[in-house]
Nucleic acid binder design. Sequence first.
DNA 1: CCGCATCTACCTAATAAGAGAGAGGCTGCC
DNA 2: GGCAGCCTCTCTCTTATTAGGTAGATGCGG
Lengths: 212, 212
Amino acid sequence: MVAVLTRKKIRVILADDHPVVRDGLAAMVNQQADMEVVAEAGDGEEAIALYEQHQPDVLVLDLRMPKRDGVAVVQRVLEINPKARILIMTTYDGDEDIFQCLSQGAKGYLLKDAPRQEILSAIRAVSEDRPYTSSGVAAKALQRMGKPSLTQRELNVLELVAQGRSNKDIARRLSITEGTAKTHVKSILTKLDAISRTEAVAVAHKRGLIRL
Amino acid sequence: MVAVLTRKKIRVILADDHPVVRDGLAAMVNQQADMEVVAEAGDGEEAIALYEQHQPDVLVLDLRMPKRDGVAVVQRVLEINPKARILIMTTYDGDEDIFQCLSQGAKGYLLKDAPRQEILSAIRAVSEDRPYTSSGVAAKALQRMGKPSLTQRELNVLELVAQGRSNKDIARRLSITEGTAKTHVKSILTKLDAISRTEAVAVAHKRGLIRL
DNA sequence: CCGCATCTACCTAATAAGAGAGAGGCTGCC
DNA sequence: GGCAGCCTCTCTCTTATTAGGTAGATGCGG
């Protein structure tokens, strides 16, 4: 046995819907002398419940999860404990979610393809309340800065556009006139700097504004 | 120590670009008495090289990888050893890749969010040359059957359509006339059963015909 | 209360996209 | 050789989309 350090171990909760990923992270974390996994969650609601129960030092959170997605979990956990230390970890690299999570108070954000060392450093950083963001992610978050954001209504319209609906169809579904639908589409095009609706969908997808 | 069985252990190679996932799978596999990980690859080329070197019983392969993607690896490995037993494992659930891999000779296909037991069963099945396909995946592969496939040219056009290019722009890039571009777009729409180009992009994405 | 943003709605004119039909050159397969 | 499938090009016609401007109604924060 290794001598136990004076400091307590960093208590970590893992939340990810892939058992494989949880196993991988758990194996990595538990191999470290200074940290341990105290619980694992497979969906958003479980993550919130387990956070409340264990009050860990760090919550490692996948953005895409069943029941409640990452952004919602971040929100809820910070309501429970405004000082919560959350490390977002995902395969996803669109910039909208990154921005949302970080601006809501997540302490770190990194991608799943990060090497072991980087993941462990990130957990340590976040546990000490230091922000951690991998370089590529930081760049994207900066890119997102200054770009106009879509209104809720525009997002609804955008979603329908992405499904290939016509303006007329969109109007019917949202119970507005075709003219209004056009206006929304137009301002979406302007904000996303796109020439056609199809390009708008491509841009929106790249930014993580919509999921397909 | 547990008594060693008469049978040899199933020798497994893991290929995935996420260190976390490799760790998770390795931990799961090595805990089993009847299997062991003999090598791990982080990209397609490495996977091929390690396969050649170790000639494992099972190759567990992620579809999306740097350097060379899953489909290409399946092809190459089966050239090296036509009896190779390959288990495709991915987060991706579009049906095009599933179909491609299975029709090329991969023995199994499952999703990363599968529970531990299912993953292990799949490895065992494939190691005995029995096909394994999780139910949801099988359904999608069947769906794909009978649906018209796009020609190479149409796929090129589709890619440009997905980027939001206009017919005129597509024509210029492919050095064809706008009329011809329209013809291709039209037959894409017909084959994908879409009304507009934007819907075509949505369908194509869902089917895994294109990546964004 | 005022200003600002948003959502709503209408208009015209220009452009792009989609439907339909036809047709020649090319390949590969039977 | 003949046939099928693909790619290419042409044409017309209709509809959808986009650009431009204008403007009333609402709600929110200063």
